[in-house]
Design a protein around this nucleic acid. Structure first.
Length: 425
RNA sequence: GGAGAGUUGGCAGAGUGGUCGAAUGCGCUGGUUUCGAAAACCAGUGGCUGUAACAGGUCCGAGGGUUCGAAUCCCUCACUCUCCGCCA
C-alpha cells in the first residue's frame, strides 16, 4: 500500500506516475471519500472528547458523593450519536481502504517508463550459447523420449498444466533444489525456513495478492478460506508482519524451497506445451527484510545471488530491468533473469527479483526500531526467485542435451546425484 | 473431536466498572561514577492518528452488546497452551 500522506500531499504527481503503471486513479472518487472521512472523523472525535470529559467528571463527583444527575443528563444522548457517526465513519474508512489497497506501488526513478515488455531494458548477458551440429530438441521431447516426463499421466491424475517426473529426472529436479538451497545457506548467508503452503487471507493481503488477485489463487472451501501459496514470498515475507524488529536483526535473509500453486486464469493458450507454465511448480525463494536506505543495494545483492546459481550451473542468461508497465503490483523495481533456451532460441524468465520498498511492509505493519530516532519505522522488503526449480530443470535439459538424447549432468549437481554424469534411457 | 486454562506495551507480567494508556521487572536511551567497562544509583522510555507545536482521538486477541463511563461485565469468533481421543 502507498503512504496515504502521498495522496494528500502530492496527488497530481502520483496520478501521473500511476498512469505509467497502467493504473487509472479515480481522483474524484478518492477526494469525495477523503473529504467525507475527514469531516466525519473530526465530528466523531469531538463528541468523544466531550463524552470522555463529562464521564470523568461523573467519576470524580461520585467518589466525592456529589449529585451527578445534571452531568448524567448532559451525556445521556451522546452515546447514541457517537455510535451512529462511528458506524458511518467506519464505512467510509473501509471504502477508502478498499480503494487504496488496490493501487499498485510507485516505480523507482531508475525504472524505465513503458507500458509493456517492449520497454524493458537488458542490463547484462552472461555465458556463451552452445553451438552444436544437431538440432536442439525441447525439454518435452527430451523428457518424454527418456521416458521420465509424463504429461499423459499428469492429465489423468490432475488435468492440464501438470507433469509427472520419474527416475533420474525426478532426481535431477530434486538435486537442483538442494543445490540452490545449499548455495544460499552456505555461501550467501540465508536462514532456511520451512513454511506453510496454506495461508490465510490476511497473509495474502500483506504481500499484495489480495484483494486484487483473488482469481489467481487456489482457495479452500473453508470459511474463512485458506489459500495455496502462489510463491514462498508470501509466508516468508509475512514472517516480519506486525512486528517491530530490532536493528541487530537486520538485514534478514530468508530462503525457502516450496511448491507454488497458481490458477493461471487468463493465460489460456499461453505456454501450454511443457513445464514452463504449470499450476504447481517448485521454487527456491529469497526474501530480504532490510533498513530502508539499504534496499537498493540489497536488490543488487539478491539478484547476484540468483545469478550465482545460473553461473554455477553454467547456464547462459541475461538480466533485464522491467519497465513501469511490466512490473508486478507490489514492486518498485524488478530485475528479471532469463535463461537461454536453445530449442526456442530465446531467453525465458527463470527468476524475478523485486524491491517493494515499504509497500508490503505498510500492508503488513512490518517495522524496525531505527536506533537513530528510537522510533519504529517501516522496513523495506524484497523477494526474488533463487531460482525457479522447474524452469532450471528445463534450462539444464535443453542446454546440456546430447545428440543421442541423453543429458549431461552439470558438474555442481553430480554430488547430489551419487556422482552420476549423464542422464540416459 | 472432548475438557480445562490463557491472549495486556519491545519482552515478561500485575490489574475484575471511574483521576488506567495501564503497576512492577527486563530491555532500551541519557546522566552520575570509572582510565575504560561492568555493577550500582538517578532520570526518561508504548503504538497508531493528528498538530507548526500543543490539544484531541484511538488501541489491553478480533467483532458485537450492557453502561453516563469497559482492559475489567455479557455474547460470538480466532489463536495459544495443557490433558484425553484420533492420526502422518
Amino acid at each position: 500500500m502507498l503512504d496515504p500522506k502521498l495522496f494528500r500531499q502530492e496527488l497530481d504527481e502520483l496520478v501521473e506516475k500511476l498512469k505509467w503503471r497502467g493504473y487509472a486513479f479515480d481522483v474524484d472518487q478518492y477526494q469525495s471519500l477523503e473529504n467525507r472521512r475527514k469531516s466525519l472523523q473530526e465530528q466523531t472525535e469531538e463528541l468523544q472528547a466531550l463524552r470522555n470529559r463529562i464521564s470523568k467528571e461523573i467519576g470524580i463527583a461520585k467518589s466525592k458523593n456529589e449529585n451527578v444527575k445534571d452531568l448524567m443528563h448532559k451525556v445521556s444522548t451522546l452515546g447514541d450519536e457517537i455510535k451512529l457517526r462511528r458506524s458511518v465513519l467506519s464505512e467510509v474508512q473501509s471504502e477508502l481502504q478498499a480503494v487504496l489497497s488496490e493501487i499498485p506501488n510507485q516505480a523507482h526513478e531508475s525504472v524505465p517508463l513503458g507500458m509493456d515488455e517492449e520497454s524493458n531494458i537488458e542490463v547484462r548477458q552472461w555465458g556463451s550459447k552452445r553451438e552444436v551440429d544437431f538440432t536442439f530438441r525441447d525439454h518435452v521431447d527430451l523428457g518424454e523420449s527418456l521416458g521420465m516426463m509424463d504429461y499423459g499421466l499428469a492429465s489423468k491424475l490432475s488435468g492440464s498444466r501438470f507433469v509427472v517426473l520419474s527416475g533420474s529426472l525426478a532426481g535431477l529436479h530434486r538435486a537442483l533444489a538442494q543445490f540452490m538451497l545449499d548455495t544460499h545457506i552456505r555461501d550467501h548467508g540465508y536462514c532456511e525456513v520451512n513454511v506453510p503452503l496454506l495461508v490465510n487471507q490476511n497473509t495474502l493481503f500483506g504481500t499484495g495478492q489480495l484483494p486484487k488477485f483473488e482469481e489467481d489463487q487456489f482457495k479452500t472451501p473453508e470459511d474463512p478460506p485458506l489459500y495455496l501459496i502462489p510463491t514462498a514470498e508470501v509466508p516468508l515475507t509475512n514472517s516480519v508482519a506486525a512486528r517491530i524488529v530490532e536493528d541487530s536483526e537486520l538485514p534478514m535473509r530468508l530462503v525457502a524451497h516450496t511448491a507454488c500453486f497458481r490458477r493461471e486464469a487468463g493465460s489460456y493458450g499461453r505456454d501450454t506445451r511443457g513445464m514452463i507454465r504449470q499450476h504447481q511448480f517448485e521454487k527456491v525463494e529469497l526474501v530480504h527484510a532490510v533498513r530502508p536506505d539499504e534496499s537498493y543495494d540489497a536488490l543488487e545483492i539478491m539478484t547476484g545471488h540468483a545469478e550465482t546459481i545460473l553461473q554455477k550451473l553454467e547456464l547462459p542468461y541475461r538480466v533485464i530491468t522491467l519497465c513501469t508497465g511490466d512490473m508486478g503490483f507490489a514492486a518498485s523495481k524488478t530485475y528479471d533473469i532469463e535463461v537461454w533456451l536453445p530449442s526456442q532460441q530465446l531467453y525465458r524468465e527463470i527468476s524475478s527479483c523485486s524491491n517493494t520498498e515499504d509497500f508490503q511492509a505498510r500492508r503488513m505493519k512490518a517495522r524496525w526500531r531505527n536506533p537513530a530516532t528510537g522510533k519504529p519505522e517501516l522496513l523495506h522488503t524484497l523477494n526474488g526467485s533463487g531460482v525457479a526449480v522447474g524452469r532450471a530443470l528445463i534450462g539444464v535439459m535443453e542446454n546440456y542435451q546430447n545428440e543421442d538424447g541423453s543429458i549431461t549432468i552439470p558438474e555442481v549437481l553430480r554430488p547430489y546425484m551419487h556422482g552420476k554424469t549423464r542422464l540416459k534411457k
